[in-house]
Design a binder for these strands. Structure first.
Lengths: 343, 343
DNA sequence: CTGAAAGCGCTTACAG
DNA sequence: CTGAAAGCGCTTACAG
């Protein structure tokens, strides 16, 4: 590969000038510019990104750290990543997919991360990934709330989980439902905790007592119950004819499918007998299935876009003041799986 | 951030020695090793990845180039990427998500790609991304066949598209189906071309004439017909009671849903009236839906793993001889959407 | 608008 | 097993 010296020599200019033609950081005369460009094309020259990075201290890449595990990608993550890549490319940034494994954190014998900043997906309490970034002084943005008293100026992009649940409950209560079952996400996740709190609060505001068995949590990803989460819980509750729920809130589309199957297997129908609401699912899938599924649009792609923008602010690429905690709005998309209760 | 000079000075050794402690490329005495490690820990020192790359000419990153567009991520891509990341991390490699836009290719004013090799998803004929990689002398592996006479030693990982179609046809023919509708992928894709060829061949071998309207192609992603592909085609063919298909092969799960909806809307049932076969879909989704969908398991994750291995061979990381074109096997997963024809 | 030179933080023959 | 020095391919004050 040709290097800057080759181009400089053949173009009869200095290395600095060649550099400026490509970086545009200082003006170059039209004549010189053309000559340099022509020679570069002939030599198939392109500036070496690594060498440039070494002096500019910028890699023009952001890391997207994803939780370690085999099944980490959901449609939600998908769309999120989509938004991240698209927005990052607007600033000339590339995205480095990073799956920081636990072992890696313990043996930091590796070279420092070649990224300018990071976006952390699914942060947990005591998150090693975050500590690592913090130690290496790499600016980062987390998706979802992070509980960590030690760290200062942590930036977060998130849906308003409480508002989401409030909206859903208001919607179902408005349809006359009083007995609502909630198939929540994993118990240890901060999002689940917030949701449950708000779920209980809203229902109590409306004078609805929380019964045992009304709230369930998704089993761990390595549990064999993981894959059929929603089925047994629904079937069990539905068989109880006196107190059976008239509406079910499902964490994601897959859970909703399981619930739907259980309802059908019990000889009941959605939405005539039981309404079904999906918090987080693939919109086009929810649209195509019969009955089509009413649910929330959490705008994962927008979450991705906003997290990149926030990071760009922290990196000084984007100027102006900014809010360290951004909320991405969500809205209910009504389809055919919820109906008002028949008395 | 501390640098190698700081560590060397405080540890009372040369930079070269510090370098060796971290890289392990030359032996260091236990005493020196411990001292260096201790000082490094105190200073929070980690070798600078960029500086290292500049001299070693290795970035320890591979690029995953994905087609430009807003909806590029399907479940298939998902799982594929999953396999890529997991396998790459086994060799200490990171994955740079790259969405080479058309404009970018035209203005190569950007710095050379900081990657050691690349995996190209969804190559098309006359693919600018491939030309770019070729020009920059970056080793790459394509997923799916690439038609390009000019390039030598191109490596490819792929399913055996013809075998896939042959297996599917054999399966359906074995169930007694003779009138099979094929909802294929996009017309311009090499995979579609191969599939159609084989579809026609197998059916003709069994004495089945190809009728007009038996083979359809997925509209472009920006077409408004894209989202409902499969519905109109199915409804139209199903209404024709004398010649209606008894089996439908759908490119992906979404297309299958559309077909399923059309069949139901026409008052028919799957699989009693019409069998439905999915080529490429999310297995767990296909499992959960009712009726559960019989289809192919293309092992996208394995495709990812194999493409990384092949690339590692090309990079000289993995030794030994290797086959430049790898085939990942696929198998039929029988569920409840196909049944033998009732005469 | 352009050039000469120092320097970014490492690794790697070379020598011992 | 260790050190001194050159060099990886750029950018960037500094000077003109």
């Amino acid at each position: 590969m040709a290097k800057i010296d080759d181009v400089a020599r053949l173009a009869g200019v200095s290395k600095g000038t060649v550099s400026n033609v490509f970086s545009q950081k200082r003006p170059t005369s039209k004549k010189v510019t053309e000559k340099v460009l022509q020679i570069s094309k002939e030599l198939n020259y392109v500036p070496n990104h690594i060498a440039r990075s070494l002096v500019t201290k910028k890699t023009m890449a952001i890391g997207l750290t994803i939780p370690h595990g085999k099944f980490f990608f959901s449609v939600f993550h998908n769309q999120f990543i989509n938004g991240v890549i698209l927005e990052a490319s607007n600033y000339g940034y590339r995205v480095l997919l990073d799956m920081i494994a636990a072992e890696e954190v313990k043996t930091p014998s590796l070279a420092s991360y070649p990224i300018d900043g990071a976006i952390v997906l699914g942060p947990t309490e005591e998150d090693d990934r975050i500590n690592l970034l913090y130690q290496n002084e790499i600016p980062f943005v987390t998706i979802g709330k992070i509980i960590n008293k030690g760290l200062q100026g942590v930036s977060t992009v998130n849906n308003d989980n409480k508002q989401v649940i409030r909206d859903i409950c208001d919607y179902l209560l408005g349809l006359g439902h009083r007995n609502i079952m909630f198939l929540n996400a994993g118990e240890q996740m901060t999002v689940s905790i917030e949701r449950t709190e708000e779920f209980v609060r809203v229902l109590q505001e409306h004078g609805v007592m929380i019964q045992p068995g009304m709230i369930h949590y998704k089993p761990g990803i390595h549990s064999d119950k993981y894959i059929k989460y929603g089925y047994d819980e629904t079937l069990h509750s539905v068989k109880n004819h006196t107190e059976r729920p008239t509406a079910i809130i499902a964490d994601d589309d897959r859970t909703a499918f399981s619930a739907l199957n259980a309802i059908n297997d019990a000889g009941l129908r959605v939405p005539e007998d039981i309404s079904l609401f999906v918090i987080c699912g693939d919109q086009s899938m929810m649209h195509q299935v019969r009955p089509s599924l009413t649910g929330m649009d959490l705008q994962p792609s927008e979450l991705g876009v906003q997290s990149v923008r926030l990071l760009m602010h922290k990196l000084g690429i984007l100027e102006g003041s900014y809010e360290n905690n951004r909320i991405v709005p969500s809205k209910i998309i009504e389809r055919n799986s919820c109906s008002s209760i028949q008395n």
